[in-house]
Design a binder for these strands. Structure first.
Lengths: 177, 177
DNA sequence: GTCTATATTCTGATAGAC
DNA sequence: GTCTATCAGAATATAGAC
Protein backbone atom coordinates (compact mmCIF):
# COMPACT_ATOMS: atom_id res chain seq x y z
CA UNK A 1 0.00 0.00 0.00
CA UNK A 2 2.67 2.46 1.00
CA UNK A 3 4.88 1.77 -2.02
CA UNK A 4 2.03 1.84 -4.54
CA UNK A 5 0.76 5.12 -3.07
CA UNK A 6 4.15 6.75 -3.03
CA UNK A 7 5.62 5.64 -6.35
CA UNK A 8 2.79 4.11 -8.32
CA UNK A 9 1.86 0.54 -9.23
CA UNK A 10 3.89 0.39 -12.43
CA UNK A 11 6.99 1.86 -10.82
CA UNK A 12 7.15 -0.59 -7.91
CA UNK A 13 8.65 -4.03 -8.51
CA UNK A 14 7.80 -7.22 -6.72
CA UNK A 15 11.40 -7.21 -5.45
CA UNK A 16 10.83 -3.82 -3.80
CA UNK A 17 7.65 -5.05 -2.14
CA UNK A 18 9.42 -8.19 -0.95
CA UNK A 19 12.29 -6.17 0.48
CA UNK A 20 9.83 -3.86 2.25
CA UNK A 21 8.15 -6.74 4.05
CA UNK A 22 11.39 -8.63 4.64
CA UNK A 23 11.19 -11.63 2.31
CA UNK A 24 12.57 -12.57 -1.11
CA UNK A 25 10.52 -11.92 -4.25
CA UNK A 26 9.55 -15.55 -4.79
CA UNK A 27 7.90 -15.77 -1.37
CA UNK A 28 5.29 -13.15 -2.32
CA UNK A 29 3.68 -15.62 -4.68
CA UNK A 30 2.50 -17.63 -1.70
CA UNK A 31 0.20 -14.70 -0.89
CA UNK A 32 -0.89 -13.40 -4.26
CA UNK A 33 -1.09 -15.11 -7.66
CA UNK A 34 0.35 -12.04 -9.34
CA UNK A 35 0.97 -8.30 -9.06
CA UNK A 36 -2.41 -7.35 -10.54
CA UNK A 37 -4.30 -9.32 -7.89
CA UNK A 38 -2.31 -7.54 -5.22
CA UNK A 39 -3.43 -4.14 -6.51
CA UNK A 40 -7.01 -5.29 -6.92
CA UNK A 41 -7.17 -6.71 -3.40
CA UNK A 42 -5.89 -3.46 -1.88
CA UNK A 43 -8.47 -1.39 -3.74
CA UNK A 44 -11.30 -3.85 -3.19
CA UNK A 45 -10.70 -4.08 0.55
CA UNK A 46 -10.59 -0.30 0.78
CA UNK A 47 -13.87 0.21 -1.06
CA UNK A 48 -15.60 -2.52 0.94
CA UNK A 49 -14.42 -0.98 4.20
CA UNK A 50 -15.55 2.47 3.05
CA UNK A 51 -19.04 1.18 2.25
CA UNK A 52 -19.22 -0.67 5.55
CA UNK A 53 -18.18 2.43 7.49
CA UNK A 54 -20.30 5.13 5.86
CA UNK A 55 -23.14 6.14 8.20
CA UNK A 56 -26.56 5.96 6.63
CA UNK A 57 -29.67 6.06 8.80
CA UNK A 58 -32.50 6.69 6.33
CA UNK A 59 -34.84 7.77 9.12
CA UNK A 60 -32.77 10.68 10.41
CA UNK A 61 -33.22 14.27 9.31
CA UNK A 62 -31.74 14.78 5.82
CA UNK A 63 -29.66 17.80 6.82
CA UNK A 64 -28.25 15.96 9.82
CA UNK A 65 -27.41 13.04 7.55
CA UNK A 66 -25.72 15.39 5.09
CA UNK A 67 -23.62 17.00 7.80
CA UNK A 68 -22.66 13.55 9.09
CA UNK A 69 -21.68 12.44 5.59
CA UNK A 70 -19.48 15.49 5.03
CA UNK A 71 -17.65 15.01 8.31
CA UNK A 72 -17.34 11.26 7.73
CA UNK A 73 -15.92 11.61 4.22
CA UNK A 74 -13.32 14.17 5.22
CA UNK A 75 -12.26 12.25 8.33
CA UNK A 76 -12.24 8.77 6.76
CA UNK A 77 -10.22 9.87 3.75
CA UNK A 78 -7.84 11.91 5.88
CA UNK A 79 -7.12 8.88 8.05
CA UNK A 80 -6.28 6.67 5.05
CA UNK A 81 -4.24 8.77 2.62
CA UNK A 82 -2.52 5.82 0.93
CA UNK A 83 -5.71 3.86 0.32
CA UNK A 84 -7.47 6.93 -1.05
CA UNK A 85 -4.60 7.87 -3.30
CA UNK A 86 -4.34 4.38 -4.77
CA UNK A 87 -8.08 4.05 -5.29
CA UNK A 88 -8.18 7.23 -7.36
CA UNK A 89 -4.83 6.98 -9.15
CA UNK A 90 -4.42 3.34 -10.02
CA UNK A 91 -7.79 2.69 -11.64
CA UNK A 92 -6.17 2.62 -15.07
CA UNK A 93 -3.82 -0.16 -13.97
CA UNK A 94 -6.68 -2.53 -13.23
CA UNK A 95 -7.73 -5.11 -15.79
CA UNK A 96 -11.15 -4.32 -17.32
CA UNK A 97 -12.86 -6.95 -15.17
CA UNK A 98 -11.29 -5.69 -11.95
CA UNK A 99 -12.02 -2.10 -12.93
CA UNK A 100 -15.71 -2.89 -13.33
CA UNK A 101 -15.89 -4.31 -9.80
CA UNK A 102 -14.24 -1.24 -8.24
CA UNK A 103 -16.37 1.14 -10.27
CA UNK A 104 -19.51 -0.58 -9.02
CA UNK A 105 -18.41 -0.11 -5.42
CA UNK A 106 -17.61 3.54 -6.06
CA UNK A 107 -21.06 4.08 -7.57
CA UNK A 108 -22.66 2.52 -4.51
CA UNK A 109 -20.80 4.96 -2.30
CA UNK A 110 -21.99 7.87 -4.44
CA UNK A 111 -25.54 6.52 -4.13
CA UNK A 112 -25.38 6.97 -0.36
CA UNK A 113 -24.88 10.71 -0.80
CA UNK A 114 -27.39 10.97 -3.63
CA UNK A 115 -30.09 9.37 -1.47
CA UNK A 116 -29.46 11.98 1.19
CA UNK A 117 -29.79 14.78 -1.35
CA UNK A 118 -32.95 13.28 -2.80
CA UNK A 119 -34.56 12.93 0.62
CA UNK A 120 -33.51 16.49 1.42
CA UNK A 121 -35.20 17.70 -1.75
CA UNK A 122 -38.36 15.73 -0.99
CA UNK A 123 -38.45 17.25 2.49
CA UNK A 124 -37.92 20.75 1.10
CA UNK A 125 -34.79 21.20 3.17
CA UNK A 126 -32.48 21.80 0.21
CA UNK A 127 -32.81 22.85 -3.42
CA UNK A 128 -30.53 21.55 -6.13
CA UNK A 129 -31.74 21.01 -9.68
CA UNK A 130 -29.76 17.80 -10.28
CA UNK A 131 -28.94 15.50 -7.39
CA UNK A 132 -26.56 13.35 -9.47
CA UNK A 133 -24.42 16.32 -10.51
CA UNK A 134 -24.50 17.70 -6.99
CA UNK A 135 -23.35 14.32 -5.66
CA UNK A 136 -20.34 14.23 -7.95
CA UNK A 137 -19.48 17.86 -7.22
CA UNK A 138 -19.66 17.44 -3.46
CA UNK A 139 -17.59 14.26 -3.43
CA UNK A 140 -14.91 15.82 -5.66
CA UNK A 141 -14.80 18.87 -3.42
CA UNK A 142 -14.49 16.82 -0.22
CA UNK A 143 -11.97 14.36 -1.58
CA UNK A 144 -9.79 17.28 -2.64
CA UNK A 145 -9.06 18.00 1.01
CA UNK A 146 -6.78 14.98 1.27
CA UNK A 147 -4.62 16.25 -1.60
CA UNK A 148 -3.49 19.37 0.24
CA UNK A 149 -4.36 19.15 3.95
CA UNK A 150 -1.44 18.53 6.29
CA UNK A 151 -1.62 18.39 10.06
CA UNK A 152 -0.06 21.36 11.82
CA UNK A 153 -1.03 24.01 9.29
CA UNK A 154 -3.06 27.16 9.71
CA UNK A 155 -6.32 25.24 10.25
CA UNK A 156 -7.22 22.02 12.04
CA UNK A 157 -9.21 19.27 10.36
CA UNK A 158 -12.20 20.38 12.45
CA UNK A 159 -11.85 23.93 11.08
CA UNK A 160 -11.66 22.56 7.55
CA UNK A 161 -14.71 20.40 8.12
CA UNK A 162 -16.68 23.41 9.34
CA UNK A 163 -15.70 25.44 6.25
CA UNK A 164 -16.65 22.60 3.91
CA UNK A 165 -19.96 22.10 5.68
CA UNK A 166 -20.70 25.78 5.02
CA UNK A 167 -19.78 25.40 1.37
CA UNK A 168 -21.72 22.16 0.87
CA UNK A 169 -24.85 23.72 2.38
CA UNK A 170 -24.54 26.65 0.01
CA UNK A 171 -23.81 24.45 -2.99
CA UNK A 172 -26.89 22.25 -2.55
CA UNK A 173 -29.20 25.13 -1.74
CA UNK A 174 -29.84 24.83 1.98
CA UNK A 175 -31.70 28.05 2.80
CA UNK A 176 -30.76 30.07 5.86
CA UNK A 177 -32.97 29.53 8.90
CA UNK B 1 0.81 12.64 -24.15
CA UNK B 2 -1.75 10.04 -25.16
CA UNK B 3 0.29 7.09 -23.90
CA UNK B 4 1.25 8.73 -20.59
CA UNK B 5 -2.39 9.70 -19.98
CA UNK B 6 -3.75 6.28 -20.82
CA UNK B 7 -1.21 3.99 -19.18
CA UNK B 8 0.93 6.16 -16.96
CA UNK B 9 4.49 7.43 -17.20
CA UNK B 10 6.12 4.45 -15.50
CA UNK B 11 4.21 1.91 -17.58
CA UNK B 12 5.11 3.37 -20.97
CA UNK B 13 8.52 2.55 -22.45
CA UNK B 14 10.55 4.68 -24.81
CA UNK B 15 10.10 1.93 -27.41
CA UNK B 16 6.29 2.26 -27.15
CA UNK B 17 6.53 6.01 -27.63
CA UNK B 18 8.87 5.55 -30.59
CA UNK B 19 6.51 3.03 -32.19
CA UNK B 20 3.56 5.39 -31.67
CA UNK B 21 5.27 8.21 -33.56
CA UNK B 22 6.80 5.90 -36.17
CA UNK B 23 10.51 5.87 -35.35
CA UNK B 24 12.94 3.59 -33.55
CA UNK B 25 13.72 4.13 -29.87
CA UNK B 26 17.16 5.62 -30.44
CA UNK B 27 15.75 8.40 -32.61
CA UNK B 28 13.76 9.83 -29.67
CA UNK B 29 16.97 10.96 -28.04
CA UNK B 30 17.40 13.56 -30.77
CA UNK B 31 14.35 15.31 -29.29
CA UNK B 32 14.64 14.77 -25.55
CA UNK B 33 17.69 14.10 -23.38
CA UNK B 34 15.75 11.50 -21.41
CA UNK B 35 12.31 10.25 -20.43
CA UNK B 36 12.00 12.53 -17.40
CA UNK B 37 12.53 15.65 -19.54
CA UNK B 38 9.80 14.45 -21.85
CA UNK B 39 7.29 14.24 -18.99
CA UNK B 40 8.37 17.56 -17.55
CA UNK B 41 8.08 19.34 -20.91
CA UNK B 42 4.54 18.03 -21.43
CA UNK B 43 3.42 19.20 -17.99
CA UNK B 44 5.28 22.50 -18.16
CA UNK B 45 3.84 23.41 -21.56
CA UNK B 46 0.36 22.57 -20.33
CA UNK B 47 0.61 24.72 -17.21
CA UNK B 48 2.12 27.63 -19.14
CA UNK B 49 -0.68 27.46 -21.70
CA UNK B 50 -3.29 27.29 -18.95
CA UNK B 51 -1.90 30.40 -17.27
CA UNK B 52 -1.72 32.22 -20.59
CA UNK B 53 -5.31 31.32 -21.42
CA UNK B 54 -7.10 32.03 -18.14
CA UNK B 55 -9.11 35.24 -18.41
CA UNK B 56 -8.38 37.80 -15.70
CA UNK B 57 -9.51 41.36 -16.08
CA UNK B 58 -9.09 42.84 -12.58
CA UNK B 59 -11.36 45.76 -13.40
CA UNK B 60 -14.46 43.73 -14.26
CA UNK B 61 -17.23 42.94 -11.79
CA UNK B 62 -16.10 40.17 -9.39
CA UNK B 63 -19.19 38.02 -9.97
CA UNK B 64 -18.81 38.31 -13.73
CA UNK B 65 -15.16 37.32 -13.38
CA UNK B 66 -16.13 34.37 -11.20
CA UNK B 67 -18.69 33.15 -13.72
CA UNK B 68 -16.14 33.52 -16.51
CA UNK B 69 -13.57 31.57 -14.51
CA UNK B 70 -15.99 28.70 -13.84
CA UNK B 71 -16.93 28.41 -17.52
CA UNK B 72 -13.30 28.73 -18.60
CA UNK B 73 -12.02 26.06 -16.22
CA UNK B 74 -14.67 23.52 -17.19
CA UNK B 75 -14.27 24.15 -20.92
CA UNK B 76 -10.46 24.31 -20.99
CA UNK B 77 -10.06 21.12 -18.98
CA UNK B 78 -12.74 19.32 -20.96
CA UNK B 79 -10.93 20.16 -24.21
CA UNK B 80 -7.60 18.75 -22.97
CA UNK B 81 -8.35 15.55 -21.07
CA UNK B 82 -4.91 14.00 -21.56
CA UNK B 83 -2.99 17.08 -20.45
CA UNK B 84 -5.19 17.49 -17.37
CA UNK B 85 -4.93 13.85 -16.42
CA UNK B 86 -1.14 13.84 -16.68
CA UNK B 87 -0.76 17.09 -14.78
CA UNK B 88 -2.68 15.71 -11.82
CA UNK B 89 -1.54 12.07 -11.89
CA UNK B 90 2.13 12.18 -12.78
CA UNK B 91 3.31 14.76 -10.25
CA UNK B 92 4.96 12.04 -8.19
CA UNK B 93 7.03 10.94 -11.18
CA UNK B 94 8.72 14.32 -11.48
CA UNK B 95 12.15 14.88 -9.96
CA UNK B 96 11.98 17.21 -6.92
CA UNK B 97 13.34 20.15 -8.96
CA UNK B 98 10.82 19.65 -11.76
CA UNK B 99 8.02 19.14 -9.23
CA UNK B 100 8.77 22.49 -7.63
CA UNK B 101 8.45 24.26 -10.97
CA UNK B 102 5.09 22.70 -11.77
CA UNK B 103 3.77 23.32 -8.27
CA UNK B 104 4.64 26.99 -8.57
CA UNK B 105 2.65 27.25 -11.81
CA UNK B 106 -0.29 25.49 -10.21
CA UNK B 107 -0.22 27.89 -7.28
CA UNK B 108 -0.24 30.83 -9.66
CA UNK B 109 -3.35 29.44 -11.34
CA UNK B 110 -5.05 29.06 -7.96
CA UNK B 111 -4.11 32.65 -7.17
CA UNK B 112 -6.18 33.84 -10.14
CA UNK B 113 -9.31 32.41 -8.56
CA UNK B 114 -8.40 33.52 -5.07
CA UNK B 115 -7.99 37.13 -6.26
CA UNK B 116 -11.48 37.01 -7.70
CA UNK B 117 -12.90 35.72 -4.41
CA UNK B 118 -11.02 38.35 -2.41
CA UNK B 119 -12.26 41.15 -4.63
CA UNK B 120 -15.78 39.74 -4.39
CA UNK B 121 -15.52 39.78 -0.60
CA UNK B 122 -14.19 43.34 -0.59
CA UNK B 123 -17.09 44.41 -2.80
CA UNK B 124 -19.60 42.63 -0.56
CA UNK B 125 -20.80 40.50 -3.46
CA UNK B 126 -19.97 37.18 -1.83
CA UNK B 127 -19.34 35.88 1.67
CA UNK B 128 -16.92 33.08 2.39
CA UNK B 129 -14.91 32.92 5.61
CA UNK B 130 -11.70 31.64 4.01
CA UNK B 131 -10.86 32.48 0.41
CA UNK B 132 -7.94 30.04 0.26
CA UNK B 133 -10.08 27.07 1.31
CA UNK B 134 -12.86 28.19 -1.02
CA UNK B 135 -10.37 28.40 -3.88
CA UNK B 136 -9.18 24.84 -3.36
CA UNK B 137 -12.72 23.54 -2.95
CA UNK B 138 -14.02 25.23 -6.11
CA UNK B 139 -11.10 24.07 -8.24
CA UNK B 140 -11.43 20.48 -7.00
CA UNK B 141 -15.16 20.55 -7.72
CA UNK B 142 -14.71 21.94 -11.24
CA UNK B 143 -11.79 19.70 -12.17
CA UNK B 144 -13.88 16.71 -11.14
CA UNK B 145 -16.10 17.28 -14.16
CA UNK B 146 -13.42 15.99 -16.52
CA UNK B 147 -13.23 12.69 -14.64
CA UNK B 148 -16.79 11.68 -15.43
CA UNK B 149 -18.25 13.90 -18.16
CA UNK B 150 -18.64 12.29 -21.56
CA UNK B 151 -20.18 13.92 -24.62
CA UNK B 152 -23.56 12.53 -25.62
CA UNK B 153 -24.85 11.87 -22.12
CA UNK B 154 -27.95 13.17 -20.39
CA UNK B 155 -26.57 16.72 -20.12
CA UNK B 156 -24.48 18.91 -22.43
CA UNK B 157 -21.35 20.66 -21.23
CA UNK B 158 -23.37 23.90 -21.20
CA UNK B 159 -25.95 22.29 -18.90
CA UNK B 160 -23.17 21.08 -16.63
CA UNK B 161 -21.57 24.52 -16.57
CA UNK B 162 -24.88 26.09 -15.56
CA UNK B 163 -25.33 23.61 -12.70
CA UNK B 164 -21.79 24.19 -11.46
CA UNK B 165 -22.21 27.94 -11.64
CA UNK B 166 -25.28 27.56 -9.38
CA UNK B 167 -23.28 25.42 -6.96
CA UNK B 168 -20.23 27.68 -6.92
CA UNK B 169 -22.39 30.73 -6.19
CA UNK B 170 -23.97 28.92 -3.27
CA UNK B 171 -20.65 27.59 -2.00
CA UNK B 172 -18.97 31.01 -1.85
CA UNK B 173 -22.00 32.78 -0.39
CA UNK B 174 -23.38 34.83 -3.26
CA UNK B 175 -26.68 36.11 -1.87
CA UNK B 176 -29.82 35.98 -3.98
CA UNK B 177 -30.72 39.27 -5.68
C1' DG C 1 6.39 -21.12 3.62
C1' DT C 2 10.90 -19.31 2.31
C1' DC C 3 14.89 -19.79 -0.07
C1' DT C 4 18.17 -19.66 -4.35
C1' DA C 5 18.48 -19.89 -9.06
C1' DT C 6 16.83 -19.02 -13.37
C1' DA C 7 13.92 -18.47 -17.78
C1' DT C 8 12.46 -14.96 -20.64
C1' DT C 9 11.55 -10.54 -21.76
C1' DC C 10 11.91 -5.84 -21.32
C1' DT C 11 14.10 -1.43 -19.69
C1' DG C 12 16.61 3.44 -20.54
C1' DA C 13 20.24 4.89 -22.84
C1' DT C 14 24.37 4.94 -26.06
C1' DA C 15 27.62 4.03 -30.20
C1' DG C 16 28.51 4.41 -34.65
C1' DA C 17 27.18 3.60 -39.68
C1' DC C 18 24.79 6.02 -43.11
C1' DG D 1 18.28 12.77 -38.10
C1' DT D 2 17.29 7.81 -38.30
C1' DC D 3 18.87 3.40 -38.28
C1' DT D 4 20.77 -1.20 -36.21
C1' DA D 5 23.08 -3.22 -32.59
C1' DT D 6 24.18 -3.36 -28.05
C1' DC D 7 25.18 -2.59 -22.94
C1' DA D 8 24.00 -3.47 -18.36
C1' DG D 9 20.61 -4.20 -15.57
C1' DA D 10 15.73 -5.00 -14.00
C1' DA D 11 11.14 -6.91 -14.77
C1' DT D 12 7.47 -10.86 -13.66
C1' DA D 13 7.03 -15.25 -12.71
C1' DT D 14 8.40 -20.17 -11.94
C1' DA D 15 11.06 -24.49 -10.37
C1' DG D 16 12.66 -27.11 -7.02
C1' DA D 17 15.49 -27.75 -2.63
C1' DC D 18 14.73 -27.51 2.14
Amino acid sequence: MKLFAREGYAAVSMRRIAAEVGVQAGALYNYTPDKQSLLFTLMHDHMQALLAAVPGDPKADPLARLETFVAFHIRYHHDRPDEVFISYMELRNLTPENFAVIEDLRRRYEDVLESILRDGMAAGRLHTPDTKIATLAVIAMLTGVSTWFREGGRLSLEDITARYWDMVRGAVGVRAQ
